[in-house]
Design a protein around this nucleic acid. Structure first.
Lengths: 341, 341
DNA sequence: ATGCTTCGGGATAACGTTATCCCACACTGA
DNA sequence: TCAGTGTGGGATAACGTTATCCCGAAGCAT
């Protein structure tokens, strides 16, 4: 908002009018050539082409967008641009395949930033938005959605506005993790995960409780949802390990927690079974290698773009939530046996 | 290019004209209110504001850009959107601080893709471009740069076009790595890194050779530049370890090589000294933790935006290459002693 | 030769903003 | 009461495209 670029004397770019003058034809004819209209005679085409290359003319896409009424761009509001982001990558690839550009902005896990980023996308009249929602409510978007903005939530649903969503199968994933540990002999399994105010934290914790209930295992002192910080994970894990009858295995609810847990366990990581929710780079190189429930990010990204195009084609279609399957990747840490007691 | 979005009957958005009609004022007055022009009477302002909220009016930024002649956006063409990208993140943050939006596109390490992405940015009339160059030559950009497009290369310089650049101090970094290993008793040190056709691969290999020459160590069978693939790193490392007088330590030229080397070493990682160029997540959690030469990505990103704004303000300023210092982070793998022989 | 179709190509009006110009109105001082 | 002076606010022309409309010149049949 402060000082936009452009203090200098940037030379003005050639416009269609310049090309028309250079080629000695009408403005409209240049437009026809640029848009490969077949009704232009061959020799005029070549004359215009020559003028275009002579002047280094590039059409101004903003003007095209304004005139055409469509921007050929979709916005992607993701939590973080610094971390690895396979979903964004898949969105990028799928969009490019459809001839759409992606305007990626990071929300930095901040509600105000998210709103700012998304509204900025709206002002740019993007043709659709893929969002990894941060805030609890997104009713600031309801007007846009009502006006026909295609909106797809990824990873978590959007609160306060009717929008399509693509989610991982959190319950099934937790179930896989729990079963894997059970199969390898664990009876006392703990869970540390995200704050339950966050959708995924809520879903995964609930699924974990359901698993424990179904298996008849102990629940007291086994579930630790909360904000993911180094300190909290350490405290929770310490409580788990120093209990009178300690858990023999751990399920972590997200990558950050998994890594904090590994950091805390240190050399003991080889003696304590662990299954993490969500895969991460180098999980296979750690010792023991970390067993994870992997989300299918590529599929999530593709599906998001599919939903976006479907809604753009038919704004009246019913709102849809797609659940993408997850996969357990056994690498060793989840297959450790409980210590003999 | 194929099927843009927008088949459906998306309701048309309200325009300034609609607001003017609703408020019963002139078009220009609405513009004044939107742009906070102080010459509008208080009661007209409130009437216009009411109309704006009643209609859910949002100004069309494309039209603003067209009219104003500036886009308030900078393009960032980076190699990959899926991997962690601290430089992009820093660019994003620094840009936002200046009120600029970032149009991020991935080049996927492909020369044609890079060109496509960058030209698309030009057609959108971005106010500047930060590029992580892929191709050998970027003369397709010379017309744009000559026309005043601010262009900053990051990580590697742009070939074939005069542009500012922000580079890491590769030579110093390799020097640090070499010195660290020397200090810990290593005399036979090997290097595996990127292809020497790539700028950073060339610089780092050259720096390594210079270090060896200065220290009087052996060079034959110690330098392995080439394309980074699982196979090649394994072959190189195997050659290093099975030589008659094997190297006792390794410097890897980039993260991919470091990780491949770790994968190959497996359990032997604790017995072979290693310093990697460039830091990566979890380097501190591996056992032994990996000593690295860390690039200052945040500083690189910030500097890139600084250069961009400086050039926009003064297109005639001399082209500048900024070298950002690197830092050695000792974590253990680089401090392992050579085996007694 | 004339009327009719066809087809290439030129004016011109949008698209949604902002900037320039200019007018009408109220206010002040003599 | 009238000229001078701001000052708020309305027409209107851009910005760089594309779409609509229309016209002039061929080509063809009568």
């Amino acid at each position: 908002m402060t000082d936009r670029l452009g203090g200098g004397v940037r030379r003005k770019r050639p416009t269609m009018r310049d090309v028309a003058r250079e080629a000695g034809v009408a403005l409209r004819t240049v437009s026809r050539v640029v848009n490969a209209d077949p009704t232009v005679g061959a020799h005029l085409v070549s004359r215009v082409q020559a003028a275009i290359t002579a002047l280094d003319y590039e059409p101004d896409e903003r003007a095209q967008q304004l005139r055409r009424g469509t921007s050929g761009t979709i916005g992607a509001a993701v939590r973080n641009l610094a971390d690895a982001h396979p979903v964004l990558s898949a969105v990028d690839t799928a969009s490019r395949a459809r001839g759409l550009a992606v305007l990626a902005m990071s929300t930095e896990d901040d509600e105000a930033r998210e709103r700012e980023a998304v509204m900025s996308m709206c002002r740019r009249r993007v043709d659709g938005i893929v969002i990894e929602p941060i805030g609890m409510t997104h009713d600031y978007l309801s007007a846009e959605v009502a006006a026909g903005l295609p909106l797809v939530a990824v990873d978590r649903p959007c609160g306060g506005v009717e929008a399509d969503a693509v989610l991982s199968d959190n319950a099934a994933g937790i179930g896989m993790a729990y079963r894997q540990l059970s199969v390898h002999g664990h009876r006392r399994i703990a869970y540390i995960g995200d704050d339950e105010r966050i959708f995924t934290g809520r879903e995964r914790a609930a699924a974990f409780r359901a698993c424990v209930a179904a298996a008849g295992g102990p629940l007291a002192g086994m579930v630790f949802p909360g904000v993911v910080t180094t300190g909290r994970v350490a405290v929770a894990l310490d409580a788990v390990l120093s209990a009178p009858r300690p858990a023999t295995a751990l399920i972590t609810g997200n990558v950050a927690t998994t890594i904090e847990a590994l950091r805390f366990l240190g050399a003991d990581a080889g003696r304590f079974a662990l299954v993490g929710f969500d895969d991460f780079t180098l999980a296979d190189i750690l010792r023991p290698a970390v067993t994870v429930v992997a989300q299918n990010s590529a599929e999530i990204g593709r599906t998001a773009i599919d939903l976006l195009t479907a809604r753009a084609a038919d704004p009246g279609r019913p709102v849809q939530t797609v659940t993408v399957p997850v996969e357990l990747i056994a690498r060793g840490s989840g297959e450790l046996p409980p210590p003999p007691d």
